[in-house]
């Protein structure tokens, strides 16, 4: 059965790229959130196998969304998308329990490899 992925990024373009890369490898995109609030709601509704969460999002940022998702499901598999200057935020997210992080801009294989390794556990 295909793994179910939730994508959360405020940029439609970003989600589209991720979606294409993942669907080509047989993943099922079950939801696309454009704000942190949406990401949290969709997570609770859809219980996906993994979430790709962008740090910078309107309404509620990715880190806050991450915290709420973990509060709802401590075993959530979350991969954070970050920019190069967000080293401290990444470390905080690691402490909270994210599986991995990818640094933008990234090559498709980074996303795939991070997701595959995170799902292996």
């Amino acid at each position: 059965m295909a793994f179910r992925v939730l994508l959360a990024d405020d940029l439609y373009f970003m989600r589209m790229v991720q979606k294409e890369v993942l669907e080509a490898k047989g993943f099922q995109i079950v939801g696309e959130a454009s704000t942190g609030t949406e990401a949290v709601d969709m997570y609770q509704e859809l219980s996906p196998d993994i979430v790709v969460l962008d740090i910078t999002m309107p309404e509620m940022n990715g880190l806050e969304a991450m915290k709420r998702i973990f509060a709802f499901d401590p075993d959530a598999r979350i991969i954070i998308c970050s920019a190069i200057g967000q080293q401290n935020l990444i470390v905080n997210a690691i402490n909270s329990g994210i599986k991995d992080f990818i640094v933008k801009p990234f090559k498709p294989e980074r996303l795939l490899s991070a997701i595959n390794k995170a799902l292996k556990e």
């Binding site: 190069i84 080293q87 990444i90 470390v91 690691i94 991995d100 640094v103």
Partner: peptide
């Protein structure tokens, strides 16, 4: 790897 410290930290 672009950010080595966070990766090592992971």
């Amino acid at each position: 790897a672009e950010l080595k410290y966070p990766r090592a930290y992971l």
